[in-house]
Structures are given as C-alpha cells and as structure tokens.
Amino acid sequence: MSDVAGLGALQEGWQEVLPGDDKSAVPLRELAVLLSAAFDRAALAIARGESAAPCEQAIRLLPSRLVA
C-alpha cells in the first residue's frame, strides 16, 4: 500500500467510522499502519500457500471489532 495514498485513505476511513465525537486521542495513523501491515502479512501467507479463509476472516474481524 502506498504510504501516501493508502495510509491517508485508511486514516480518513477510521476517522469516519470510529464511534464517539472526540477522536483526538485515537492514534489514527498508527491504526492505519497496523491494518495495512495486517493486509500485507495476510497476502504473504496466502502467497506462501497458506489457506486464505483464516486470513480473510481475521482481516474482517480487525476493523469490525474496533468500530463495535
């Protein structure tokens, strides 16, 4: 993911979906970096021949648990 375009888009997305009005205490950039890294790790695991289903399930769980 591009550090400029991709991380910016992830940060903006987190800003919109995180609950609460005061998001100044939320480390949006760090959340974006970590989610991007999770996508990268999942892609590498799948490329190595690991099953895609558990990776896909884990990737779906990450953001859904943060915004719940």
Results as ranks from 00 to 15, higher is better:
Ala25His: 11
Asp3Asn: 14
Leu35Tyr: 15
Leu66Asp: 03
Ile59Thr: 01
Arg48Tyr: 15
Leu31Val: 11
Asp22Val: 01
Gly13Glu: 04
Leu28Met: 05
Asp40Ala: 11
Ala45Gln: 05
Gln57Cys: 00
Leu34Pro: 01
Val67Gly: 04
Val67Thr: 10
Gly13Ser: 07
Cys55Val: 00
Ala42Ile: 00
Leu31Lys: 05
Ala52Ser: 15
Ala47Ile: 09
Pro54Trp: 08
Asp3Lys: 13
Glu16Phe: 14
Leu61Ser: 10
Leu18Lys: 07
Gly13Gln: 09
Val17Arg: 10
Ala43Glu: 15
Ala42Val: 02
Ala43Thr: 13
Gln57Ile: 05
Ala25Glu: 10
Ala5Val: 08
Gln15Pro: 00
Val4Thr: 15
Phe39Ala: 08
Ala68Phe: 12
Gly13Trp: 15
Phe39Leu: 11
Val26His: 07
Phe39Asn: 03
Ala9Asp: 12
Leu7Ala: 05
Val33Ala: 11
Leu28Pro: 06
Ser2Gln: 12
Ala25Arg: 12
Ala52Thr: 02
Arg48Cys: 14
Leu44Cys: 00
Ala9Glu: 12
Gly6Arg: 11
Leu7Tyr: 04
Glu16Ile: 09
Ser36Met: 06
Leu31Pro: 14
Gln15Tyr: 14
Arg65Met: 02
Ala38Trp: 02
Arg41Lys: 10
Gly20Met: 00
Val4His: 09
Glu16Lys: 14
Ser51His: 08
Leu66Met: 09
Val67Gln: 13
Arg60Cys: 10
Ala52Ile: 05
Ala9Pro: 01
Arg65Tyr: 07
Glu16His: 08
Leu62Trp: 07
Ala43Ile: 06
Ser36Gln: 08
Ser24Pro: 10
Asp3Ser: 12
Val17Ser: 03
Asp22Phe: 04
Ala32Glu: 09
Val67Arg: 09
Val17Phe: 04
Leu61Ala: 13
Asp3Cys: 01
Asp40Gln: 13
Arg65Val: 07
Pro54Leu: 04
Leu7Lys: 14
Ala68Ile: 06
Gln15Arg: 15
Leu66His: 03
Ser64Gly: 02
Glu50Met: 05
Ala37Glu: 15
Ala9Gln: 05
Ile46Gly: 02
Ala45Trp: 06
Ala5Arg: 15
Ala47Arg: 15
Glu50Thr: 06
Pro54Met: 09
Leu18Phe: 13
Gln57Met: 00
Cys55Trp: 10
Arg29Thr: 13
Arg65Lys: 04
Leu18Val: 14
Gly49His: 11
Ser64Trp: 01
Ala45Pro: 02
Gln57Asp: 08
Glu50Phe: 13
Glu16Ser: 04
Ala42Thr: 10
Glu30Val: 07
Ala45Ile: 09
Pro54Ser: 06
Glu56Thr: 00
Trp14Met: 03
Phe39Ile: 07
Ala25Tyr: 07
Asp21Arg: 14
Ala58Gly: 13
Leu61Lys: 05
Pro63Leu: 00
Ala38Arg: 06
Pro63Ile: 03
Leu10Cys: 01
Val26Cys: 04
Lys23Trp: 05
Ala37Pro: 03
Leu62Val: 15
Ala52Asp: 10
Ala58Pro: 00
Leu10His: 00
